[in-house]
Nucleic acid binder design. Structure first.
Length: 162
DNA sequence: CGAATTTGACCAGCGC
DNA sequence: GCGCTGGTCAAATTCG
């Protein structure tokens, strides 16, 4: 019955040709308490647009914290330091591009992630995180580090309210 | 050889 | 109640 809306707009530049390894140069994350974020430009001519997207989980007691990252990148997969295993891919009707479903490969970590490209701007990649990682990061991504800690700061949010 | 990806099938929720 | 859309699973395949 709760609507969790969290956007993490950040600009990022990644290598156009990277399958396994992703490259992240600049990342600007702006987390507002489920309200609004502003446009931010990174020092690499990368800019992100403000996006107010309400993620509503209209379920009975089913509240899930989702964290949407809107990233301007050429690659779909953003290396956040965690290992992800793709478990599905669907073509959403609203998007010309398919949406990929990833899951954390950790033993006890059941964090899910969705990666979807914008139909308007094919360079915009929307990465939606679901859940909080319960294990340390394998790889330290300084650009994503502060983003993740902000996500964890919102962790107790899912414990309150019913 | 093991782990991760791919792709279709299956299922659940919502709308009509 | 049926159909559509979206999400997950699972088996086969490929990569490392």
């Amino acid at each position: 019955m709760e609507n969790y809306h969290m956007l993490f707009p950040d600009g990022s530049s990644a290598s156009p040709s990277s399958s396994s390894s992703l490259a992240m140069a600049n990342h600007q994350s702006y987390l507002q308490g489920g309200d609004l974020i502003g446009t931010r430009k990174v020092g690499d001519e990368k800019e992100v647009s403000e996006s107010s997207e309400v993620i509503r989980v209209g379920k009975k007691g089913t509240r899930k914290h989702k964290y949407a990252f809107q990233t301007r990148s050429q690659v779909d997969i953003l290396d956040d330091g965690y290992r992800w295993r793709k478990y599905g891919q669907k073509t959403v009707k609203n998007s010309k591009f398919p949406r990929s479903y990833y899951r954390c490969t950790h033993k006890e970590c059941n964090v899910k992630k969705q990666v979807q490209r914008s139909s308007k701007d094919d360079e915009i990649v929307v990465t939606t995180y679901e859940g909080i990682h319960t294990h340390p990061v394998e790889k330290f991504t300084e650009n994503f580090e502060h983003i993740l800690r902000q996500m964890q700061s919102y962790n107790p949010l899912c414990s309150q309210n019913n």
